[in-house]
């Protein structure tokens, strides 16, 4: 029994300069399915909705209320395409993590000797851990043996088994891409509302705070991307470990029920993380385009009006 944990997505194949990873592959599948399914629902939309349309409308209405409640009618409607797409994509991308087959369907691939050697130089950080997750700090893919079986560890170096699917948000590139897009649009919204000078003046309200404001703006990229990546990746690890453990326990009924609890939790966290990312995007843009005088008021209003945001945040942090 072994579990496969890799912080970085595995490369499936090389396409020109682009290394197509399993998370990228899953991302394209998720995007394609979302566009296909929701596009078909929207195309066949009737004034009196059916079941599928009802569900989509429920999501859309929830998001619409959220953006209009936080950003107001005008700004809310302007950011709705972005916030809506972020929420729906992240939520459904996170749900892929609990699908059977994601992380458990493997393809065989010959090891790349160079990569393995490169990784060996890095000291292992997880030494002494019960599950021997020794590879977290290394630059390579390693299957960590959960039992003391020596042949399993040896096999990992001879022939790599790559999971075909990986939740898109368990890839820092994906979350970083969304965070950078959000950051860029926040700056665009701020400049559109106040002009370049106005935006700079806004940030340098007491002048000495300007560097802190700049750091604060850029730190949002890291906080947004790292939070989402960390949660989804940790969820994957958690499920992997639970599956491995209940499998190793070899008590017939347990594997049927114990993971269900964690799958339920992952469903919850997937939605919460999608909501957090979408809500923070919305709040950043709203704050950036809010007028100077009621800046503080807007912020207070946002938090007061949507107590879900900090609450969801806290529970997500506590859960993972």
């Amino acid at each position: 029994m072994k579990i496969h944990i890799s912080v970085k997505p595995e490369v499936l194949f090389q396409l020109g300069p682009v290394a197509v990873t399993n998370s990228m592959f899953t991302m394209f599948i998720v995007m394609g399915l979302l566009l296909l399914v929701f596009g078909l629902i929207a195309k066949n939309a009737k004034p009196v909705p059916g079941k599928a349309q009802g569900i989509f409308e429920l999501i859309a209405e929830f998001l619409l209320d959220l953006v209009e409640g936080t950003g107001g009618k005008k700004i809310g409607r302007q950011v709705f395409p972005l916030v809506g797409a972020i929420f729906i994509f992240i939520a459904f991308a996170n749900y892929t993590g609990i699908l059977p087959g994601v992380g458990t369907i493997y393809i065989k691939k010959a090891p790349e000797a160079g990569v393995v050697h490169e990784g060996e130089a890095v000291p292992a950080e997880g030494e002494g851990a019960a599950l021997e997750l020794a590879s977290l700090g290394q630059d390579t893919i390693v299957t960590a043996p959960i039992t003391a079986g020596g042949e399993a560890a040896a096999e990992g170096h001879e022939e790599e088994h790559l999971p075909l699917f990986r939740p898109p948000n368990a890839d820092i590139n994906m979350t970083l891409a969304m965070a950078v897009l959000t950051f860029t649009l926040v700056q665009v919204a701020g400049i559109k509302a106040h002009g370049v000078g106005g935006r700079l003046k806004h940030m340098a309200d007491p002048v000495f705070l300007f560097p802190i404001e700049v750091i604060g703006e850029f730190s949002r990229i890291i906080s947004l991307s790292a939070r989402l990546f960390g949660n989804v990746f940790a969820g994957e690890v958690l499920l992997g470990v639970i599956y491995a453990m209940v499998g190793a326990l070899k008590i017939a009924v347990l594997p049927l029920f114990l993971p269900v609890v964690f799958i339920g939790l992952e469903l919850l966290f997937g939605t919460i993380q999608a909501l957090v990312f979408a809500l923070l995007t919305l709040i950043y843009i709203t704050l950036a385009s809010a007028s100077h005088s009621d800046h503080g008021h807007e912020e207070a209003h946002d938090v007061a009006h949507h107590p879900k945001a900090p609450g969801a945040h806290a529970s997500a942090g506590a859960g993972d």
């Binding site: 990228m24 566009l35 897009l181």
Partner: peptide
């Protein structure tokens, strides 16, 4: 990988708004 996923996500946002979220 970052560039591909950034562009893919931007295209997704656009298409999703045009064909799914916008009409609904």
């Amino acid at each position: 990988g970052f560039i591909v996923q950034l562009i893919a996500f931007m295209i997704f946002v656009f298409l999703f708004w045009k064909f799914a979220l916008g009409p609904i």
